[in-house]
C-alpha cells in the first residue's frame, strides 16, 4: 500500500477516463437527449476497436482507420434505430439485439477473439506506453483531450442548429415534435447513429491505448458510460448549465470514475468484484433523485417565518 504506486497510476487513470469520457458523451446523447437507454454501445465499443485495429494491420492510414471505426459504429446505431422505428421494437430490446449480433460481427472482423497491434510499428495516436518520456503532444492525455474538445465543439454546434433542436425536441416530447413537423423516426435513427459513431471513436482510441482489440472489451460499457454521465451531473450540474459544459462534466465524470477505480484496486479490492461495484454505484446514483423526492421534505422554515412576520405586522 504505497501511495506512490497509486500516484504513478493516476496518469493512466486520467487517460482512460478521457477515452471513456468520449464514450460517455455518446451515452449522454441517447440517454439524456433522446431519452433512450441504448444498449448497442456495449457492442459498438468493441466494434470501433476491432475495425480500427484491423484497418491499421491491413495497411490503412490512421485517419482512415478512425473514420472507418466511426462509420462502423454509425451503421450499428442505424440498425438499432431501424429495428426500433421500422419494426416497432422497444429501444432497449432493439439495442440488446444489435449488441448481441455485434458480438458475432466483431469476431468476424477480428478473425479471433483478440488482435494485438505493435504500438510502435503502427505509430498509434494514443498508447499507454507513452504516458511518460515523450513530448507532451504525444502524451495520450493530451491527444485524447484534443479529441474530447473537438467532439464537444462539434456537438455544441450541432445541437444549436435547427436540426439539433429537432433532435432534442424528439427526446423531450415526440408527440409535440410530430405536431411541429419533425420526423421523429428519422431523428431517433440519426441520434442513435451519432451516439454510436462517437462510442466507436472511443473504442478505436481505447484499442490503440491498450495495443489490442478484444471482443470482450465493451462488456458493461453502458454502465461505465452511465456512471460517468451521472457522476458528472451529480457533482457539477449546479455549476454547469450550458450544454457544452455539461458534456465537459460528463468527461470529468469519466475521469473521476477511473480515478476511483484505480484507487479501489490499489486499496486491494478483489478485481472480480469491480463490475458489481460499478453497477451498484450507478444504481445508487440513479436512485438518489427519486428517493430524495419521496422522503426528504425541503426546509421551508425561512418562507414560513416570512409569512409569520407579515401576519404579525
Amino acid at each position: 500500500m504505497d501511495i506512490s504506486t497509486l500516484l504513478n497510476q493516476m496518469p493512466g487513470a486520467v487517460a482512460q477516463g478521457l477515452i471513456w469520457g468520449i464514450m460517455a458523451i455518446g451515452v449522454y446523447i441517447t440517454y439524456r437527449v433522446l431519452d433512450i437507454a441504448d444498449l448497442t454501445v456495449d457492442g459498438t465499443m468493441a466494434t470501433g476497436g476491432a475495425v480500427c485495429v484491423m484497418l491499421l494491420i491491413n495497411g490503412y492510414s490512421m485517419p482512415v482507420a478512425i473514420i472507418g471505426a466511426v462509420i462502423a459504429g454509425m451503421l450499428a446505431g442505424m440498425i438499432t434505430g431501424l429495428l426500433h422505428t421500422l419494426l416497432g421494437i422497444p429501444p432497449i430490446l432493439a439495442g440488446i439485439l444489435t449488441q448481441l449480433s455485434l458480438y458475432s460481427v466483431n469476431l468476424k472482423i477480428l478473425g479471433s477473439g483478440n488482435q494485438t497491434i505493435n504500438t510502435r510499428k503502427y505509430d498509434v495516436l494514443v498508447s499507454m506506453g507513452e504516458l511518460k518520456g515523450v513530448p507532451f503532444y504525444q502524451n495520450p492525455i493530451f491527444v485524447t483531450a484534443i479529441f474530447v474538445i473537438v467532439v464537444i465543439c462539434v456537438l455544441y454546434w450541432l445541437f444549436g442548429t435547427a436540426m439539433g433542436s429537432a433532435l432534442r425536441a424528439t427526446g423531450n416530447n415526440p408527440n409535440m415534435s410530430r405536431a411541429q413537423g419533425i420526423n421523429t423516426n428519422t431523428m431517433k435513427v440519426f441520434g442513435l447513429m451519432l451516439s454510436n459513431g462517437i462510442v466507436a471513436l472511443s473504442g478505436a482510441l481505447l484499442a490503440q491505448y491498450d495495443g489490442q482489440a478484444d471482443v470482450q472489451k465493451g462488456r458493461g460499457a453502458i454502465v461505465i458510460g452511465l456512471a460517468a454521465v451521472i457522476i458528472g451531473e451529480v457533482l457539477l450540474s449546479k455549476l454547469l448549465r450550458n450544454f457544452a459544459l455539461r458534456l465537459c462534466a460528463v468527461v470529468v465524470g469519466g475521469i473521476i470514475y477511473y480515478i476511483v477505480y484505480q484507487t479501489v484496486i490499489w486499496l486491494g479490492l478483489d478485481a472480480d468484484l469491480l463490475k458489481l461495484l460499478s453497477a451498484a454505484v450507478v444504481a445508487i446514483f440513479l436512485g438518489i433523485p427519486y428517493l430524495k423526492r419521496r422522503f426528504v421534505r425541503p426546509s421551508i422554515k425561512s418562507i414560513m417565518a416570512q409569512e409569520e412576520d407579515s401576519t404579525n405586522a
Binding site: 450541432l158 444549436g160 442548429t161 435547427a162 436540426m163 439539433g164 433542436s165 429537432a166 425536441a169 415534435s177 411541429q180 413537423g181 419533425i182
Partner: peptide, 17 residues
C-alpha cells in the same frame, strides 16, 4: 417557439434560433 416557427419547413444546419 423556434421549433414552432419552423413547422413544415426543412430543418438543416442553420442556427436553431
Amino acid at each position: 417557439l423556434a421549433l414552432a416557427a419552423r413547422r413544415g419547413k426543412s430543418r438543416g444546419l442553420g442556427w436553431g434560433i
